[in-house]
């Protein structure tokens, strides 16, 4: 299989970037998209050229490391998938595939396709956890949680923090990520003691990081690999308004 990659090359954060074309032959349609990039990098090594920097880790859709903008879509042409779960069979022989890094002011480009997503870490640091003593795991049935609550908390907890929501959003809003992280804990009894502070602190950090505001285009929930619904954002808004009005 032969395709042409047009890949964003940028030396560092401050350098001027550009799309560079690479014709790549010898690909198999069974290769994952990341394996195709590996294949291209091997060719570049043999040619003594600089390899393309891109992030990856588990390559099974759970770590949230990989994430690039492929042919005008976050994580490629399919809905609700990660880049590592995209395969070359989704493209045709002779296709031109444009690959760009996530674009958002809060995600500065480090090099080529790698962006700095530590803004997400700083949002988590503001309350994306519960303060509890570590040690032996507590008896699982000590705190009872209804099925509905645990299901909806788990739906939010599925977020892998890949940043596709920010990348696809025209406003570079981190509302889906932040809402998922807040709702995951605030729905559960374990999250209750710090629920109020968590909501206010994490949203404040989200604004401080200069992410845009949510205008409900709905693009994020289509691209989200964890299929997180934008109703989470509306729920965050509801709780925020309630917290501000009634303390």
């Amino acid at each position: 299989m032969k395709v042409t990659f047009k890949i964003w090359r940028q030396e560092n954060t401050d350098a001027q970037g550009e799309l560079k074309a690479y014709e790549v032959d010898g690909l198999s349609e069974d290769m994952s998209f990341l394996e195709a990039l590996d294949h291209l990098n091997e060719i570049l090594v043999l040619k003594d050229e600089k390899v393309i920097a891109f992030e990856h880790d588990c390559r099974e859709g759970i770590c949230g490391q990989c994430g690039v903008f492929i042919n005008g879509r976050a994580h490629g042409p399919h809905n609700n998938t990660t880049t590592c779960q995209l395969h070359m069979r989704s493209f045709k022989e002779g296709d031109t595939i444009v690959v760009e890094p996530w674009r958002a002011s809060s995600f500065p480009i480090v090099k080529d396709l790698v962006v700095d997503r530590s803004a997400f870490d700083r949002i988590i640091q503001q309350g994306g956890y519960i303060t509890a003593k570590t040690g032996t795991a507590a008896e699982a049935n000590a705190i009872l949680v209804s099925k509905e609550v645990s299901d909806s908390a788990m739906d939010a907890a599925a977020c892998i923090g890949c940043g596709a929501c920010v990348a696809t959003c025209k406003n570079a809003s981190a509302a889906l990520f932040t809402a998922a992280k807040i709702n995951h804990l605030n729905k559960l009894p374990q999250g209750q003691p710090e629920a109020h502070r968590r909501l206010l602190d994490m949203t404040a950090q989200m604004e401080f990081e200069n992410f845009g505001s949510c205008t409900f285009t709905g693009a994020c929930e289509i691209e989200c690999p964890a299929d997180i619904s934008i109703s989470n954002i509306a729920e965050m808004n509801a709780r925020y308004v309630k917290a501000k009005l009634f303390g």
């Binding site: 042919n71 005008g72 674009r103 809003s173 200069n210 992410f211 285009t217």
Partner: peptide, 12 residues
């Protein structure tokens, strides 16, 4: 301003 640089190809 939050978005910054636009994508060269974007099929939103």
């Amino acid at each position: 301003k939050s978005k910054g640089e636009k994508y060269k190809v974007n099929h939103n």
